[in-house]
Design a protein around this nucleic acid. Structure first.
Lengths: 197, 197
DNA sequence: ACTTTTGTGAAACGCTCACTCCACTATAGT
DNA sequence: ACTATAGTGGAGTGAGCGTTTCACAAAAGT
């Protein structure tokens, strides 16, 4: 019953996600969100309650449409020993793109962690869960690559790889070469025969 | 000639630096800066030209008063082989502080890199130079610790340590334990007898 | 056909933003 | 003492912020 919406929620959230990714939560004004989504503010507030509600939806969409597809091979039942290397090498290519068209704004969630809204406990929990998810996926990739290593060594290597990724995404905007360097050195660790001497 | 200022520039910039660190460039409003510094807006604009001018001064002060003193032992002529370990261990303690009173907001420059103002080329250059400065200092610490390692190995280890620091500072706000974990794993690399097997 | 429910459009809300203006005060040089 | 210069206080600028309101449009259930 009632009038049908003239928009597709998925497309709206996807547009909002792009804007938040580019401009950050504080930097994406509601009027810019109106332009990006094609909805006017009354529809936005009707559908999502607040700018914050749309942001939450955009984060969910980011995880579902950007993060998890990228991690798919690391989340599979059988993990390819090359999967973790391929993942980091792919991100390295993206941040190195000279035109900067592919991954110009780093990671929506890393950017969020460094912004004021990260003081909101719910937002902090989402970013923290994202880091856990990265760590779990990377851990599986590293276990597949170094099956004979100790759990402690794999744990350290996993955290180092996650740190290299987070740092690369944090600095993509200001220095793509440096970001690629972080990933290159993480790859160097993964290309050794054993994780720890 | 002319009336003398009723404030000390150093104290004003230091207060502004704290506010920008806590709230970010966009998040620190001019009226909040008035409260923090004790100056009213006309004095701020007279002395610094713009909010952005005060921000630039705050960044300079951050480098001079926070970053470089911390790196002092790594910038000395003779670098202690323990200096790089001590540095990372100290940061680890700071981000782990349960009350979060010591380093609650990560790094002013990392936060800046993840915000909208990082698209300004001058700001990007300052953050990029900060990363270079970190890398050079860490490189010296690692050369002192692993004098017999190859240049390539030291380079990789340096970048991995810088990445671990940057990632820890990026996530301090949302997950201090995870930030400490990044540093812990970097320390594990440094505590091995040789950087690469 | 009519009621009920829901989405839409446009205008406006009070508020804060970065910034400016100007009269006034205070000092240094002459 | 006077002039030139520079800092201060306070009110005010227009623009933009997130959000709300409300009359109206459109579709589902009876």
């Amino acid at each position: 019953m009632g009038r049908l919406p003239r928009f597709e929620t998925a497309a709206v959230v996807s547009s909002a996600r792009e804007l938040f990714w580019r401009e950050g939560y504080e930097g994406a004004s509601v009027s810019a969100l109106q332009q990006a989504t094609g909805l006017n503010s009354s529809s936005i507030y009707h559908a999502f309650g607040s700018k914050r509600g749309l942001f939450d939806a955009a984060i969910e969409d980011y995880l579902a449409s950007v993060v998890r597809p990228g991690l798919a091979r690391l989340r599979a039942e059988q993990v390819d020993p090359e999967a973790i290397v391929d993942y980091l090498a792919t991100v390295r290519e993206l941040v190195l793109d000279p035109a900067g068209h592919t991954l110009p704004d780093g990671c929506l969630l890393v950017n969020t962690a460094c912004s004021g809204i990260a003081r909101d406990p719910e937002v902090a929990a989402v970013v923290s869960a994202y880091r856990s998810e990265l760590a779990e996926s990377f851990g599986r990739g590293i276990a597949a690559r170094f099956p004979e290593a100790s759990a402690a060594d794999r744990e350290h290597l996993t955290r180092t790889c996650v740190a290299s990724l987070v740092a690369a995404l944090a600095l993509t905007r200001v220095d793509g070469e440096a970001a690629a360097g972080f990933l290159e050195s993480a790859l160097a660790l993964l290309r050794r025969p054993h994780p720890i001497a």
